[in-house]
């Protein structure tokens, strides 16, 4: 049996009056790349925030290495987060620091390593993402793809057990996308780290993911290996994979009847 690093058990989560997840379960196998896909606005980023303990589910439990995240006290949660990294969609680099200082940030905050060791570690991390030459640049001087790679170097600074990627490919040109796909795969293998990739870029992620979950309509509508997903018979899964405009996920946002609205019966 595969060991699960993160185990999401029957969680329900709602925001204001809107239910985001309705009793869903996801298991993230250790040392593998798991993709969570789904249409925009389905709350994929919310899932990562739940795993990171920034949000708490209404019902159900989320465990990380066997320990319940929602039940942790603040101190324990902060301690656990040292083993979890998250690559934000925007990169979220600290704009008042150079790339080097951004990557060194977590090391300086959480370790007592001498500056010379930190320098070596940071340069190695930057080398891994191909940005050693950009160490002294400020985040505003980086392109979108470079910013995301710099953020990736920062995310692996403390050698985490789990890296969560929030839409790593969104808005990237084909070259940057290729670089990121290669990096996620390479880092996962080299550091034997567990990865969760939240995305809606189907073809990129199916190439690298060991296991895939597809979320829609507040539920998991399909899961399996990339091959199993491609061969899924679910109409919803196929609509998503093939990018069809209409299907089980309707093209139209729910609305009243068009003719009655145009004739002025309803607003």
């Amino acid at each position: 049996m595969t060991e699960h690093l993160v185990d999401i058990q029957n969680i329900t989560f709602s925001r204001a009056d809107r239910i985001i997840y309705d009793d869903i379960s996801i298991q993230i196998p250790k040392g593998k790349i798991t993709a969570i896909m789904g249409p925009s606005g389905i709350g994929k980023t919310t899932m990562l925030r739940l795993i990171g303990g920034q949000l708490t589910p209404d019902k159900g439990d989320i465990t990380f290495a066997g320990e319940s995240i929602p039940k942790m006290n603040r101190k324990k949660l902060y301690h656990t987060r040292k083993a979890i990294s998250m690559l934000f969609q925007s990169g979220a680099l600290f704009t008042d620091m150079s790339v080097f200082d951004n990557v060194a940030f977590a090391l300086r905050e959480h370790t007592d390593l001498p500056e010379s060791v930190i320098q070596t570690l940071v340069l190695l991390k930057l080398e891994a993402v191909g940005l050693r030459g950009a160490a002294q640049l400020m985040p505003s001087e980086l392109s979108g793809g470079m910013a995301r790679r710099a953020a990736l170097a920062r995310a692996i600074a403390l050698d985490p057990e789990l890296i969560m990627y929030d839409e790593p490919f969104a808005g990237q040109d084909p070259i940057s996308m290729g670089v990121l796909v290669k990096l996620i795969k390479a880092l996962s293998e080299a550091l034997s780290v567990t990865s969760i990739v939240v995305t809606h870029d189907v073809s990129e992620v199916l190439n690298i993911a060991d296991y895939v979950y597809i979320l829609a309509n507040k539920k998991v509508i399909g899961h399996g290996t990339a091959e199993q997903i491609k061969g899924s018979e679910s109409e919803l899964v196929q609509q998503f994979l093939l990018g069809k405009a209409d299907g089980p996920v309707p093209f139209h946002y729910p609305a009243t009847d068009l003719s009655s609205q145009l004739l002025g019966d309803l607003i």
Partner: peptide
């Protein structure tokens, strides 16, 4: 807005302190 506060939290650094 640029998720820097969230990213501090996820890096186990309390934004209230930092």
């Amino acid at each position: 807005a640029t998720e820097q506060l969230s990213s501090l939290e996820m890096m186990a650094v309390d934004p209230l302190r930092r």
